Simulated assay, not measured.
Amino acid sequence: MDPATIIGILLAFGAVYAMVNMEGASVSSLLLPAPMILVFGATLAVGLAGSTLKDTLHAFKSVPAAIKGKSANPMDTVEELVSLAEKARSEGLLSLEGEAQDSKDSFTRLALQNIADGTDGEDLRVMLEDEIHAKKVSDHTASKFFKTLGGYAPTIGIVGTVVSLTHVLENLSEPAELGHMIAAAFVATLWGLLSANFMWLPIGDRIAKISDLEQDRMNLVMEGLLAIQAGSQPLLLRERLKSMVPPHKLKEGKGGSASGKGSSKGSGKSEPKLKAAA
């Protein structure tokens, strides 16, 4: 699990809490139910109005996986693909059918099963690229929904402030209460800005980032398995796949180092299983 999102959001709200205390204000003065209900309730409502119920539910279902942020180490994936290449080279492509049955990743399972079934390489590439594109569209829908909420929230906060200030103007005959009422009026704007920049936009960006990482993994798996189908040598395959990995991620993983040390030597006894991201 990558806790970056949780840590970041907690630190952001912690900074606000620290500022409030340093200014000598009270946190309770910001936790007013009325403006919070307006900002969060209306933001979700207009977000739903601009989308579909199915896409809204899909967006919220995407949040847990995005927050967990599980993603396979690229070099682990490379070494696992190399192991598959060694197995295919020593036992034949039909041996990959067993790996397909053991794989927990639907994308890898689809590719391995089609390779074992003798599907043409070009047809398989088109099929896998369509799977990657479908993943991209699905994740983009979820990411866009939360970014849209981030766009609505500040404006809705201003709406709340205008409504509250209207109430203030109705009570000008009570000057002793004006300061408190004006301060409370701006709480709606505050929560609009906080929810947009501390919650909705970061969640949307997080979903997009995790989606990019998963698509990179899927592309790596696709190129590796297509090369295996074409009979690529394991050592040549490793170098080719390493060239697809960003330099800062060329580090030692569980399956072996970036230099390829510690990988299997083609004995055919290993049973590699490609990891799936959440």
Rank of each mutant, 00 (worst) to 15 (best):
A153G: 05
D76G: 03
T43V: 12
L124K: 05
F13R: 08
E214T: 15
A85M: 08
G253Q: 07
I228P: 01
K249V: 01
L44R: 00
L226G: 09
S90E: 11
A134E: 14
K70T: 15
K68E: 13
I67C: 05
T189I: 07
E177C: 10
G253K: 04
E170T: 15
A12T: 13
G204E: 02
F146Y: 12
I132S: 05
E86I: 02
D2F: 08
A59E: 09
T5F: 05
K254Q: 15
G253L: 07
G231V: 11
S95Y: 04
E79V: 11
F186D: 05
A88H: 00
A153R: 00
A258D: 03
A45Q: 08
G204R: 01
G14K: 12
A34T: 14
L110A: 14
A12N: 11
M199P: 05
T148L: 08
A88V: 12
K254A: 15
G266N: 02
D216E: 13
G256Y: 07
W191Y: 06
E239D: 11
F107H: 04
S257D: 15
G224W: 01
W191Q: 04
L178F: 00
G179Q: 07
L274K: 04
F107V: 06
G231F: 08
A183E: 01
A18F: 14
E122L: 12
A176N: 14
G150Q: 09
K104F: 06
E91S: 12
E86A: 12
L226N: 07
S106E: 13
D120F: 03
V221M: 08
L124R: 03
T161W: 02
P272Q: 11
A153I: 12
L110S: 12
G47D: 06
A49P: 00
S95Q: 01
K87D: 00
P74W: 10
L250Y: 01
T52F: 04
L93M: 11
S90T: 15
R125K: 15
V221W: 02
S259W: 02
G192H: 01
Q233F: 07
L178W: 00
T141S: 10
V78I: 12
N219S: 03
L48F: 13
R206E: 00
A66F: 02
S62F: 07
A18P: 03
T56S: 13
E223V: 03
A15M: 10
L250C: 07
G69Y: 08
K242V: 12
I182K: 07
I132K: 09
P175V: 14
G253Y: 03
F107Y: 10
T141R: 09
D216N: 11
M22Q: 06
M75W: 02
T5P: 02
K70F: 14
G262F: 04
M244K: 14
R238D: 04
F145H: 04
M199T: 09
H167K: 14
M22T: 12
G160I: 02
V245L: 10
L236G: 13
A59F: 11
G268M: 06
L201M: 10
S95V: 05
A18V: 15
P74T: 08
S51I: 08
A59D: 06
L237K: 08
G268T: 05
L81R: 06
E80C: 01
H167V: 13
L128W: 06
L149K: 01
T166Q: 09
A176Y: 05
K61D: 15
H133T: 15
A183L: 06
A278Q: 04
L193I: 15
F186I: 15
G47M: 03
